[in-house]
Design a protein around this nucleic acid. Structure first.
Length: 509
RNA sequence: GGCGCGUUGGUCAAGGGGUUAAGACGCCUCCCUUUCACGGAGGAGUCACGGGUUCGAUUCCCGUACGUGCUACCA
């Protein structure tokens, strides 16, 4: 249906990659892959003030982790480079000047102070709009209000200037959003946006249009916050390339904060105790670390899944999707218009589901690293896998493997003595002393054998099996949690089981 | 303030002129397990409001309210 679909994503390397950003990438990726198009990642680094060292690499690391590998980018090459906007300055200037020649843009020499004065004056007059537009531009200092020679003189003298688009009043600009349908804007409400900044860098408005044209972008997903500036982009397409070549736009709904309302921000994560970034981000200036889903113990499969169904679903009852599945089933028609509040509880549920259904070998390395970070080294690979299979159902985050499974690697540091004391007596002490001895000579060390032996002694001594099992569990684990107790005994081995019984016997009074 | 966009349970949401208005998360109860989870069975809880149009509106239209976004030489 669609040929040569190209979608783009424009991360600004100003630090961090938040949920909304990843979801935008994801939808671009899904659409591109679905229609055999190219997934192009371009770097928007035109705001030098906000540019942060290392952010570009960070963004590609995040994309790698998520499995959203670009087809074309700074890192991956491609036919439409350079992909960094700072390396395309000359291109943008050329088009900005073309716009001036055609009468759709002009030089503006106003200083920041003069702009502020204009806004103050407008405010004083009780004006509805504080914009630099057709109503005020003739009273400002620009190549429209000035005589040609005056502008010439200023230009030659090296006066700082910006290039602004000239928006004609009383026109209507419309376009069709693939998610929202037809949208119309009255140009009376659109201001003369800056296209080229005084430092020679383009603004987003100029850059997107030119890059989309030059990179032959056919479709683009971006956040809803861009909707109000869409008329500027549409007009630029009219003036420069003709609207037939314009990409089809899709404005995605916002991801909202869980409590109250508003766009989810990094601060909300800090405040509510969950990550907002894909991966840990260390601000090189402030040294602040913002936590990421990866480091918290999320699986990329779960992360992608939860993001995909935030604002989209396939219309069935299916909730769990893997990336290939999403590519297959994704349809724009099913994308929502309204924003969705982020629910961390549900995010964890997705991770839990993915831990349960993925083969543990998929994340063995990461769990091993978690154990090693906790001081448990020299783990035998086969043993780790075995333990992981045993406890995966009770792990919501990857980090839970340690809290749920550390007793498989080291004896309990403390015991739930209250529970033991309630049931402890001389008969039970005798039971465990004898059991420990019997275990030494047990023929075989598999769960059913251990269980049968344990139950036989209990029956011989006429002690309730439930209480004994509970105590046995606390001896091995330290607490009343974990998988079937005889399975734990089998897993940690005969020697270790006997050792833990005798150690516990010393502790229990 | 102006302009844009939106509004189905607490949250994510299906649906769409006549339905007992799906499902999921969370919450509650029970079963399983003499542990904790997992799993299973149930339960409570919803179409923002007001006008139209219509035999009939949650669904279509118009208002209102509310929310949110933009209103930078940020993206």
């Amino acid at each position: 249906m669609f040929k040569n679909v190209r979608v783009r994503f424009a991360p600004s390397p100003t630090g961090g990659l938040h949920l909304g950003g990843v979801r935008t990438v994801l939808f671009n990726y899904l659409f591109a892959k679905k229609y055999d198009g190219q997934f192009i990642v371009r770097i928007e680094d035109t705001d030098q003030k906000r540019y942060v060292e290392g952010a570009e690499k960070y963004i590609f690391d995040c994309l790698d982790w998520c499995g959203l590998t670009p087809d074309e980018s700074v890192l991956h090459g491609g036919a439409y480079g350079p992909y960094r906007q700072s390396e395309r300055k000359d291109i943008y200037r050329q088009y900005a000047e073309e716009l001036i020649e055609k009468g759709h843009a002009y030089y503006a020499f106003d200083t920041p102070a003069e702009l502020e004065a204009m806004r103050d004056k407008l405010k004083l007059q009780g004006s509805d709009s504080l914009q630099y537009d057709h109503r005020v531009r003739m009273s400002m200092k620009n190549s429209l209000s000035l005589l040609p020679v005056e502008s010439e003189t200023l230009l030659n003298a090296g006066t700082p200037y910006v290039i602004r688009i000239k928006i004609n009043p009383n026109e209507f600009v419309s376009f069709t959003d693939m998610i929202r349908g037809d949208i119309e804007f009255d140009t009376n409400n659109v201001d003369d946006k800056v296209l080229l900044k005084a430092d020679g860098m383009p603004t987003y408005h100029l850059a997107v249009v030119i890059d989309d044209y030059l990179m032959k972008i056919s479709h683009a997903f971006r956040g809803e916050e861009w909707l109000p500036s869409a008329p500027v982009h549409i007009l630029l397409w009219h003036y420069l390339f003709g609207v037939d070549e314009m990409p089809k736009w899709s404005h995605l709904p916002l991801i909202l904060k869980p409590d109250g309302n508003g766009k989810l921000s990094k601060r909300d994560g800090d405040r509510l105790g969950f990550p907002v970034y894909a991966m840990d981000w260390a601000d090189p200036v402030t040294k602040d670390i913002t936590s990421g889903f990866k480091e918290l113990g999320f699986l990329p499969e779960a992360f992608i899944n939860l993001l995909a169904v935030l604002g989209w679903n396939d219309g069935t009852e299916q909730k769990i999707f893997m990336l290939d599945d999403l590519v297959d089933k994704f349809t724009i028609e099913k994308v929502h218009k309204g924003g969705a509040k982020f629910d961390f509880e549900k995010a964890k549920w997705f991770n839990h589901e993915w831990i349960k259904r993925l083969d543990v070998a998929n994340y063995e390395v990461r769990v091993k690293n978690i154990f090693e970070a906790k001081g448990i080294k020299n783990i035998e690979p086969g043993y780790l896998l075995k333990v992981m299979k045993l406890i995966k159902d009770r792990c919501i985050l990857l980090t839970d493997f340690y809290t749920q499974g550390s007793f498989f690697f080291e004896p309990p540091l403390s015991y739930d003595e209250a529970s033991v004391n309630a049931k402890w007596d001389a008969a039970k002490r005798e039971f465990f002393s004898e059991t420990a001895i019997l275990f030494e000579t047990l023929d075989g060390w598999e769960e059913p054998i251990i269980e049968a032996a344990f139950k036989k002694i209990a029956a011989d001594k006429n002690i309730k099996i439930g209480e004994l099992q509970m105590i046995f569990r606390i001896m091995l684990v330290g607490s009343k949690t974990g998988p079937a107790v005889f399975l734990i005994a089998e897993t940690i081995g005969r020697e270790e089981t006997i050792l833990r019984i005798t150690n516990a016997l010393k502790k229990f009074s």
